[in-house]
């Protein structure tokens, strides 16, 4: 099986996120970065499939600036065989659809049987890229899977998805694309031998020209969606506790809702 996992480097969950001074991005000074946690489920699932079948190659792919190579090295240290880093200044400012186009071009260069994405990136929460890519590549996909069985003998996969109040079980021929939800597995840690080996594994850097993409078709000017403003959530004010017995408290509450909050 030839498996690809698309990963994104995102600010770590402990990072304190503040809007940047222009109000259109977050302030990136002093942030530490990690592999998007949902993408880690994809990495783990790919490695498990390879181990179960006893054969295969796992490739991690990411788009972004220089520092994204750290995230790819981490994937290599965890056990991924090779990595592809798509890096090109022209990409800066691209919207999700453009990112999906670039990834599709990269994925098309190889015949992958299975492609994994996280169900969303924890920074912008758009949840769209994997699904866009499936559409652009004409692949079947299942989004937000929490269990996956691969049947190599007849090249098909069975995936479980948690839906409102039930589990949906879907079947698809391969190649197919999956976006990963929590509970799919428990991502392993990098190991010391893995870290030591990571440097020797291939990490290929591609620019847009390697993918046959015209730089004029990407970037901020080509974005269909632009960010107008990023603001901090409102500071939560302390609640009010109404004292007294139930009947007094209720009438006090009603008058507060009517006069102060003005919602009844």
């Amino acid at each position: 099986m030839n498996i690809a996992v698309c990963i994104k480097q995102v600010p770590s969950t402990e990072s304190k996120i503040r809007p940047a001074s222009d109000g259109k991005d977050i302030d990136r000074s002093g942030l530490s970065y990690v592999v998007n946690p949902y993408d880690e489920f994809g990495v783990e699932e790919a490695l498990k499939i390879k181990e179960q079948l006893g054969e295969g190659t796992v490739t991690a792919i990411s788009i972004g600036p220089e520092k994204v190579s750290d995230a790819l090295r981490t994937c290599l240290a965890v056990g991924v065989d090779q990595a592809i880093h798509i890096q090109d200044d022209a990409i800066h400012g691209s919207d999700g659809f453009t990112i999906a186009r670039i990834l599709s071009a990269a994925l098309q260069k190889e015949n992958y049987d299975i492609i994994f994405f996280g169900r969303q990136a924890i920074d912008d929460d758009s949840g769209a890229i994997g699904v866009f890519v499936a559409e652009l590549m004409g692949l079947p996909h299942a989004a937000g899977i929490n269990k996956l069985e691969i049947h190599p003998e007849d090249r098909r996969a069975v995936a479980h998805r948690q839906i409102e109040g039930a589990t949906e079980i879907v079947e698809t021929p391969l190649p197919a694309l999956f976006t990963c939800q929590k509970e799919l597995n428990e991502p392993r840690y990098a190991s010391l031998p893995g870290i030591m080996k990571a440097k020797q594994k291939p990490l290929t850097v591609w620019g847009l020209s390697d993918l046959g993409i015209d730089p004029a078709t990407v970037g901020a000017t080509q974005a269909r969606i632009t960010v107008d403003q990023i603001t901090s959530p409102p500071v939560r004010t302390t609640g009010k506790i109404i004292e007294g017995n139930a009947s007094e408290a209720v009438s006090e509450l009603v008058s507060l809702l009517r006069e102060e909050v003005k919602i009844v």
Binding site: V34, R73, T74, A77, A190, S191, I195, M196, K199
Partner: peptide, 8 residues
């Protein structure tokens, strides 16, 4: 490598 060890 040292940074990866720390992160891990």
């Amino acid at each position: 490598e040292q940074t990866m060890i720390r992160d891990m």
